[in-house]
Design a protein around this nucleic acid. Structure first.
Lengths: 254, 254
DNA sequence: TCAAAAATAATCAATATTGAGCATGTATTA
DNA sequence: TAATACATGCTCAATATTGATTATTTTTGA
């Protein structure tokens, strides 16, 4: 078997199964473990898959979800907290705000204790409950079909409810930002919600850590220029920062 | 199994179930407790999940952890569980049901694990989260203004959303039942919700323990005869039981 | 409050994986 | 044909992972 053919089959197998151990690949492809390892190293160098101890895993899987610690840098919690701190500065007592679902917006929620007369609207139950429990702000849950994994509401009920509400500010989170392709997310049903929230807000603020930039996701939400403000952390590549500034000058790296 | 694969599956299991014990994870993944613990520690260090005594919990759900506990501290739990068991007998696979807020309806929620194709609509987030976490039934949150003490939604948004939905059965809880004055509750904004739910259900089932009878509350909801079925516990006074039977023969004491 | 039970952390030996160096085989080119 | 480059497989020392055992800590229930 040719090298190219073998490597292609490795990628296919890894993609199909999510994970493949070196031993399994040896068996499937009739090659020695040394060869398979060399292949995995090469493919990993080119970013076609992720090398793990004992085998390889689909690179996309890495991008899609929270994955194993070895391969992925941490969850960037500190960055998210810094971003949230900066975002909260834009809120003033009496505001009504949309708070999107996600870990960064959750950090924003946790910083609302200094306020008491906000009206916070969200479809993320974690966010809603945290604010309701720890602050005296008014919380409105945008109901709908409840997704078990993310504890968020979505679907036509959610969309319709959002469409009836107009707020000062919307804090939006996305899964990926590209200068060329704009903002994207993985969950299809989240797209309509994010768009609707942006539509019905006077000011639109994007909050996302630097790892989201130049990633890709499935579905397009909007253009980078559609936001009044973009808040990210300081881990952003200088070249990338300039490119983003060209399409949206309101970029803030904290 | 690869380390990366195992850790990814741990994250998934924890996210899907809210919580996973070390032992359950051992069983599911075929690894020793030492290994599972090591994995949990790694994932916890990176903020991908929350380590707890006995297992691991979804990081985002940390805030919601003691919700069910609060509720379970209530009174007459055994009676409520018996009432719930009887109520669940009226549910059949495929039904769409309104589940009112309250401790008795919460016990109903906990008994829905035997079903998988229900559509459960509720404005009580404890109920919604419990069903979503422990079953594969479809849960729809009827959103609106969130009340911190009861963790329920109410207000015009909730009422409007309910008015758009029609179901097979509605399980209603009340604070007081009087033969003369009918059913009552303390919270004014709950009245409209309960009425709306009853209006839009083909079958109306009242669930309440015996302590609610011949009590009084602030606001009237409906008449005793408006229910197709009343389920209560056996602690009901015999004289009272006869009086109620006169206005509504579909009384069941379990 | 205290003691029993359960869960955890630390340690260690057994096992598995890895990368590097080297030998072999094969295709390509001068 | 000989020289070369390249792919492959093998061995082995270094490293990483794992499960068992132990002591320690935490939780539970009287």
């Amino acid at each position: 078997m040719l090298l190219a053919e073998r490597q292609e089959r490795i990628i296919r197998l890894v993609k199909a199964n999510g994970f493949m151990s070196v031993l399994d690949l040896c068996e499937q492809l009739g090659a020695s473990s040394a060869t398979i390892r060399r292949d995995i190293n090469m493919l990993s160098d080119n970013g076609l898959l992720l090398k793990t101890h004992g085998g390889a895993m689909d690179a996309m899987r890495g991008a899609l979800m929270d994955l194993p610690v070895n391969l992925r840098r941490s969850m960037n919690t500190e960055e998210k907290i810094r971003i949230a701190a900066e975002a909260v500065l834009r809120i003033k007592e009496g505001d009504s705000i949309f708070l999107d679902s996600g870990t960064t917006t959750f950090e924003i929620a946790r910083k609302l204790q200094t306020f008491s007369r906000l009206t916070v609207l969200t479809h993320d139950l974690s966010v809603a409950l945290d604010i309701s429990r720890n602050t005296s702000n008014n919380v409105i849950v945008m109901g709908g079909g409840l997704k078990a994994d993310t504890i968020t509401c979505s679907g036509i009920f959610t969309e319709r409810m959002i469409s009836d509400i107009h707020v000062n500010k919307a804090f939006i989170a996305v899964d990926a930002v590209s200068v060329v392709h704009g903002c994207m997310c993985f969950a299809v049903d989240e797209v309509a919600i994010k768009r609707q929230m942006m539509n019905n807000a006077m000011e639109r603020i994007l909050v996302c850590d630097h790892t989201k930039f130049e990633n890709m996701a499935f579905v397009n939400i909007c253009q980078v220029k559609d936001f009044n403000q973009i808040i990210t952390d300081s881990g952003l590549d200088e070249k990338l920062r300039r490119e983003i500034l060209e399409v949206n000058p309101n970029l803030l790296c904290v």
